[in-house]
Nucleic acid binder design. Sequence first.
DNA 1: GCCACTCGTGTAT
DNA 2: ATACACGAGTGGC
Length: 187
Amino acid sequence: MPKHETNKAHHQISRMIPEKETGIAIRYNIYESLFGETLIASTDKGICFLSFGEKKMMEEELKQRFPGADPVEEKAEIHSTALSLLSGSDSNLSIPLHIKGTDFQLKVWDELLLIPFGHKSSYKQIAENIGKPKAVRAVGSAVGKNPVSCLIPCHRVIRSDNALGGYHWGPELKERMLQYESKNNFL
DNA sequence: GCCACTCGTGTAT
DNA sequence: ATACACGAGTGGC
């Protein structure tokens, strides 16, 4: 079976307008995943935040990112979809995302969604793809601000010299995710 | 390995 | 509005 063909899983991003954020309903819950404890948060329009780490920390970050909202700890159906996507190698699943970002960030994140499972890209490549070949460093920053972790596959972006590059949750996790994908890519 | 270059963003003027 | 410092980077040396 040829390499690329599992790749339609292109989630749709809808943009959250910060001014309309006040009073928005956000439901979140903590789940166990392949990569440790994860917090998954959603609005009625899609996943708005996904993080790894310690519960207290993640809740703190959630509130910090949505100061106008009042997140409620409560399961939602869409969380299950997100959860299966975290470890789904053959994901034909797609999931709506409802996230905040600048024009530039949205462009970068859209580009990340095109990288197939098990594949890698580089910050340079992304910069070229969005038509700003010199904005490499800015791309790095934008990639790092992706609010939904591996739903937007920022772990698949490494340096053009093949070095691992940075990762919000540490290089070990990035490495684990990449290894997981390369092992499961041809099953 | 060190350094200049580059550019979007947040923060301060 | 304007200035400045800071990155999950890159290429030249």
